[in-house]
Simulated assay, not measured.
Amino acid sequence: MTAADRTRPHVWTVSEVKAGTLTQCLGVARFIDPDPHVVTVRKEFRWWKPTLSHLFDLWRLRQPDVIISCGGQALSHTMLIAGLCRRRPLTVHLAGPKPEYEDRYDLVFVSRHDWTSEREKKPNFHPMIGVPHRVDTEEMEARRPAAKARLAPQEGPVATVLVGGPNKAYHYDEATVARLVATIRGLAAEGWTVLVSTSRRSPAALQERLAGLGEPRIVIWDRQGENPFRDYLAAADALVITKDSVTMLCEALATGKPVYAFDLAHRPANPHLDKFERYHADMSETLGLTRRFEGSLAPYAYDPPQESRRIASMVEARLAERTGRIAP
């Protein structure tokens, strides 16, 4: 370990095993510590049935100066780790925690669509746009020429379509899947090269349906080999994202290109649906960052959010207050 490594704040991330929670933690952590220690958990901590592997790390490894957590299962583990450290680390949670943990964190960042007047009163709470992630505008610009030349060598614009999967708010019924397939074919017929990628949550039947499109201007990732996700983003002149994924839509906004939300079949009215719909309304109607997909991919301009970097700066400033160091 170099002298610079010893003076730089050390970050632990604590998240659920779900990729979306880990990527949020790492999206922020990388601006503070390029080599954070990653802890993933499957269940809440129970003293009578502990999971000790990451607790042993407290004695084997450098203890954290900052813990960044995400996901409901991570809350109890974060507090346990923080309580066992020789010097209590700064604790940061991404998303609204359960009520019993709200005052136990030093900093909490909550997406605007989950923001409430009660949270406004809490000095440790701060709103954020969408969710943090690991995609940067500068990286997208640097990748773009090579990605576009490799994935879309023919003339014409490139549309990237990112497809998620059913959740508690939306489902992929036959009419929705048929509309998605028709959209992809329609864009190709208009001269777009269409890059299509599914996610871990995409049902196998949906992947098979998309794989059967097989047209010259439609490129479907077959989920074999290295994930081309970042190149699919970078190559795009416009993007279509299914509404079930908050993270993919936020990542798409890092490109600075038009981002259109593709509507899905709604499950019967429930809190999850209301939450997603509030999110999409905020991103499109209030902030002007996205558009609802209604058949065309007209260009428009916006300033890509830099939430991961902004949150990291706030964490460093708070840590500097505590330690007396000067924030970078």
Rank of each mutant, 00 (worst) to 15 (best):
T78R: 00
T78M: 10
T78Q: 10
M79F: 12
M79Y: 03
L80N: 02
L80A: 11
L80I: 12
I81P: 09
I81G: 06
I81L: 15
A82P: 02
A82T: 06
A82V: 06
A82G: 11
L84E: 12
L84R: 14
C85D: 13
C85F: 10
C85S: 14
R86M: 14
R86V: 15
R86Y: 10
R87T: 15
R88G: 02
R88T: 09
P89T: 12
P89A: 08
P89H: 05
L90A: 09
L90T: 08
L90C: 03
T91F: 08
T91E: 07
T91S: 15
T91N: 10
T91W: 04
T91K: 07
V92W: 03
H93N: 12
H93F: 10
L94M: 02
L94S: 04
A95N: 11
A95C: 04
A95R: 11
G96D: 12
G96H: 15
P97V: 00
P97F: 08
P97Q: 04
P97S: 08
K98P: 05
P99M: 14
P99C: 11
E100Q: 14
E100K: 14
E100L: 14
E100R: 12
E100S: 14
E100Y: 14
E100F: 11
Y101L: 11
Y101I: 10
Y101T: 09
D103T: 14
R104H: 13
R104Y: 14
Y105P: 11
Y105S: 04
Y105D: 09
D106R: 11
D106A: 11
D106E: 13
L107F: 03
L107P: 03
L107E: 09
V108W: 01
V108D: 09
V108P: 03
F109A: 10
F109C: 00
V110R: 00
S111I: 02
S111K: 03
S111C: 06
R112P: 02
R112V: 02
H113V: 04
H113F: 01
H113Y: 06
H113W: 01
H113S: 05
W115Y: 08
W115D: 05
T116N: 08
T116R: 07
S117E: 13
E118W: 13
E118F: 06
R119W: 07
R119M: 13
E120W: 06
E120Y: 06
K121R: 15
K121H: 07
K122D: 08
K122Y: 04
K122A: 09
P123I: 02
P123N: 00
P123E: 04
P123G: 08
N124C: 07
F125Q: 05
F125E: 03
H126I: 00
H126M: 00
H126K: 05
P127Y: 08
P127L: 09
M128E: 00
I129Y: 01
I129P: 01
V131H: 04
V131A: 11
P132S: 02
P132V: 07
P132I: 06
H133F: 07
H133R: 01
H133E: 04
V135G: 01
D136W: 06
D136M: 10
